[in-house]
Computed example of a mutant assay.
Amino acid sequence: MKTAITILLLFVSLNFISAQQTSKDKEEIHQLLNSFMQSIVKKDSVTFNSLFFEGNVNWIGVIKEKSQAKRIEVNPSIVKNYFTSTYTSFIQSILRNKKSEEKFENIVIQNDDAIASVTFDYSFWSEDSMTNWGNEYWQLVKINGQWKISSVLFSIEISKYYPKS
């Protein structure tokens, strides 16, 4: 009987410790998201670049079907409904613009102590006007105790064609 109680207490303790770590990781990931958004507003490329994995990072945007149809209507020579880029190119474009902001809503985090995925709805703003919006998916890795972005995938609905309701 004592052995069963000891095993039960050990199991409960391990689950409690695991839950505490998961909660701490989620707080750290929320801080990463906030740092990302703030570095855009503040045009802080040093902080922005520090949020990313030092190896290859995927950066892919895919234009949603309705917006792509409108783009083709305006310019029939448009073929691709996607683009690839880098986070360094993205922040450089932010530095050239007068005022930019990206807002996140409906954030969902799934993680263990080494990897995580984050999904959310985003809207991108330039000069206080929404330019595009959609869904965004990040893959994260925990390197030397710090969460880093290793992949960014996002859909794009163009606001001038389809404003966010």
Rank of each mutant, 00 (worst) to 15 (best):
N97D: 09
N75S: 14
F90R: 08
Y82F: 15
S100N: 15
P76Q: 06
I91C: 07
Y82L: 08
K80R: 12
L95K: 12
T88C: 03
I94H: 05
L95E: 14
N97K: 14
Y82V: 00
R71W: 04
S85R: 09
V79I: 14
I91N: 07
R96Q: 14
I91Y: 05
K80G: 01
I78M: 06
E101C: 08
I94M: 10
S77I: 08
K80C: 00
V79M: 06
N97H: 06
V74Q: 15
A69Q: 14
E73S: 10
N75E: 12
S89W: 03
A69C: 02
S93A: 09
I91R: 09
S93E: 09
T88D: 13
V79L: 10
F83P: 05
R96D: 11
K99C: 00
K70I: 02
Q68S: 09
N97T: 06
T86Q: 08
S89R: 13
S100E: 11
N81E: 07
S89T: 08
E102Y: 04
T88R: 14
A69N: 14
N97E: 13
Q92V: 02
T86I: 03
K70E: 15
S100K: 06
R71S: 10
R96P: 00
P76I: 01
S77G: 03
K103N: 12
S77K: 14
F90V: 03
Y82N: 06
T88G: 02
K99I: 01
N81V: 00
N81Y: 04
V74S: 13
S85F: 06
T88H: 12
I91S: 07
K80L: 09
T84V: 09
S89N: 15
L95R: 05
T88M: 09
T86A: 07
T88A: 13
E73W: 02
I72F: 00
K70R: 15
I72Y: 00
I78G: 01
V74C: 07
I72R: 04
V79D: 05
K103W: 06
Y87N: 14
L95H: 00
I72V: 15
V79A: 08
Y87G: 04
I94F: 04
N81P: 08
S93L: 07
P76H: 05
Q92E: 15
K99H: 05
N81G: 15
K80E: 08
K70N: 12
I72L: 00
I78H: 04
T86P: 09
F83M: 11
E73R: 05
V74L: 12
N97I: 01
P76V: 02
S100M: 11
E101M: 09
R96A: 12
S85I: 03
K103Q: 13
F90I: 03
V74T: 11
R71H: 05
R71C: 10
N75T: 11
V79G: 03
I72E: 00
R71L: 15
A69D: 12
K99M: 05
Q92H: 12
E101R: 13
T86K: 13
T86V: 04
T84C: 06
N81L: 02
N81Q: 10
I72C: 00
E101P: 00
E102C: 08
